[in-house]
Simulated scan of single mutants.
Amino acid sequence: MSPIATIAVSGMKAASQRLEVSASNVANAMSTGALPNADGTLPAGAPKAYDPLTLVQSDVAGGGTQATIAKASQGTSASYQPSAPFANKDGLVAAPNVDLAQEMISQLVAKYSFAANARVLKASDEMSRTVIDMKV
């Protein structure tokens, strides 16, 4: 595979991962859980809130990109839901910090990034075919 194609494929993989991360965050945006105790542990039998994910993208030496999925730094915050069975005495639960507007932007970035890298891959293929045709 040509270096151009390798770079484009790495971009397409990163775009796919970006979309997966965003879809997971949107799907679990309402997945609340118990607030941790002062020592960081959860009450016995209480569910844990969804920890939002983030995509960390970095350059690869020689070209391309590498994407790593990590937990978001500000994963949850206290939310008032007194009817939740695992709410604390103040009616608070842990809710994921998911910004749906930001997730929509992330999904659009993934869409356009994937499409742009697919066009690069197609152009690389066409150039290779032209070179092969010239040699024949």
Rank of each mutant, 00 (worst) to 15 (best):
M1V: 11
I4C: 09
I4P: 02
I4L: 12
A5N: 07
V9D: 00
V9S: 10
G11C: 03
G11V: 04
V21W: 05
S22H: 14
N28I: 07
M30E: 06
G33Y: 03
A34G: 08
L35P: 00
A38R: 10
A38G: 06
D39G: 10
D39P: 03
G40D: 10
P43I: 11
A44R: 12
G45N: 06
A49T: 03
D51F: 00
L53I: 03
T54Q: 13
T54H: 03
L55Q: 05
S58Y: 01
T65H: 10
T65G: 13
T65R: 07
T68I: 14
A72Y: 04
S73E: 07
G75N: 13
G75S: 15
T76I: 13
S79Q: 15
S79F: 14
Y80G: 09
Q81F: 11
P82I: 09
S83A: 13
N88I: 13
G91T: 08
P96L: 12
N97P: 04
V98A: 10
M104Q: 04
A116M: 09
A118K: 02
R119T: 08
R119P: 02
V120M: 09
S124C: 06
D125P: 00
T130N: 11
V131Y: 10
V131N: 11
D133E: 07
M134P: 01
V136G: 13
